[in-house]
Amino acid sequence: MESLGQVLKQMKGPSFMKRSQAIFDELLSDPIVKELREEHPELDEAKLRTNLPRLYQYVNDRRNCGNCPGLEKCPNDFQGHYSKLETAALNGQLELVERKAPCSLQIAKQNEDQIRKRIRSFYVDERALQEGYNEVEIMGKDRHRAPAVNQVFRYIREVKEHGLTPRGLYLFGSFGTGKTFLMSYMLHELAIAGYTGVIVYMPEFMEDLKSMIQDNQKLKDTVEVMKNCDLLIFDDLGAENLSPWVRDHVLGAILNFRMNRKPTFYTSNYDFGGLEKHLSFTSKDGEEMHKGQRLMDRISPFVDVVHLHGENQRRSQA
C-alpha cells in the first residue's frame, strides 16, 4: 500500500489541501483511530492533524496485520513490524511518538533463530533439527518406544527444573527406531531453556578427522567446541571406522575433559558390551582390549542407559 507521501506527491495547491483533508476525515472515522483516541483522550484533532503521516502509517499497518499473509509476505514497510503510537511530553508539549514494534510472528522467528544459534551440528541431517516436534506424536508413533521416550522426557524436565548435571544418556537400539530424532528433540527443548548443544554424526566425523590432521587449527577449534558446549551428542557411535589416534587422542581427550563436568549423550546400535568390543579394535593395531576399556571408563559411569525398542521407522516410511 502507498505511503501518504506517495499519495499526495503528485498534488499541488488546492488539490493537495483538499485530498489531505479528505484523508484526514476518513482516518478520523476509522475504527482503528477511534480506538486510539479512546486510549488517549488527550489527543485532539489538531494534534492528530499535525501527525497525519504517522496516523496514516499506523492505520495501514494495523489493517495489514489484520489480514496478515504471513511473515514472508508482510506488506508493511518494515517487515514483521507494525507502527505503534504513543504520547509523550517533549519540551513541555504533548507529542505523538511512533515506534516500530515486532509482531508475534516476528518475535517467534527471533526466538527460533536464537534457539538455532545455540545448536551446532556436524554432519547430521539438518531436517532432524529443523522439523517441528510434537510430544503427542513422539509418544504415540510406536508404543514400544514409550519407556525410552518417557525417560528422555523426564531428563529434559529435570534439567529445566534443576539444571545440568554431568550425567548424560546412552540411547541404544536397532536401526531406524528414532534415536537421532529423540536426541535432536532433547537438544531443541534444552536450547529453548538456554543451553548450548552440539550433535555429531560419528561415521562422517571420523572420516573428516583424517583431513584435519593437516589443519591443526581447525582440529583444535572443533575439539574445543565439543569440549565446552553444554550438551554433546555423539550420534551413531560404533558405526565409525576407528584409528588409534582418533580413539585415543581425539575422542578420548574430549570425553576425559567432559566427565564430571558436562553431560555427554550417545546413540548407538550397540549395548555396552558390543561398544567396548568396537572401541577395542582398530584397523591399524587390531584388538587392544585395554584401550576399549579405558574409553568405556569415560562413558559408562556418566550415563543412564536407555534401551529404545520399536519398529524401523525408515522402512515403514519407505
Rank of each mutant, 00 (worst) to 15 (best):
L190R: 04
I138Y: 03
L182K: 05
E2R: 11
F181S: 11
D230L: 05
L171E: 06
P69V: 02
E204W: 15
L251N: 02
T222C: 07
K277Y: 10
S174A: 13
L55P: 01
V305R: 09
D61C: 13
T177L: 04
A108M: 07
V33Q: 01
S29P: 11
L232K: 10
K34I: 08
S3C: 00
S104R: 13
M11K: 05
I213M: 07
M183D: 12
H162T: 15
T165Q: 11
K262N: 04
N51T: 13
I192A: 08
S300D: 01
P263E: 11
H249V: 03
S280R: 06
E276F: 02
F257M: 10
K34Q: 12
P53M: 12
I299V: 03
S300G: 00
N91P: 00
V97C: 14
D44H: 12
D77R: 02
I299K: 00
G292C: 03
G273M: 09
C103I: 06
H278P: 00
L237C: 13
I254L: 02
L85D: 10
M226K: 03
E288K: 06
V59E: 03
E240I: 04
M259H: 08
S20I: 09
N241A: 07
K9R: 13
E135A: 12
T180D: 14
M1R: 07
L90Y: 03
P166G: 00
A193I: 05
L52V: 11
G274T: 00
P31W: 09
N134I: 14
L169I: 11
I119C: 01
I23S: 04
Y195T: 05
F205C: 02
Y201C: 07
D285L: 11
K291E: 00
Y58L: 01
D248N: 09
E95H: 08
A191S: 15
K84F: 00
A191H: 10
I115A: 02
S174G: 07
Y201G: 05
K218M: 13
M17E: 15
F122D: 12
Y123Q: 06
A46Y: 14
S211E: 15
N64S: 12
V59N: 01
D208Y: 11
P263M: 08
A193F: 08
R157D: 13
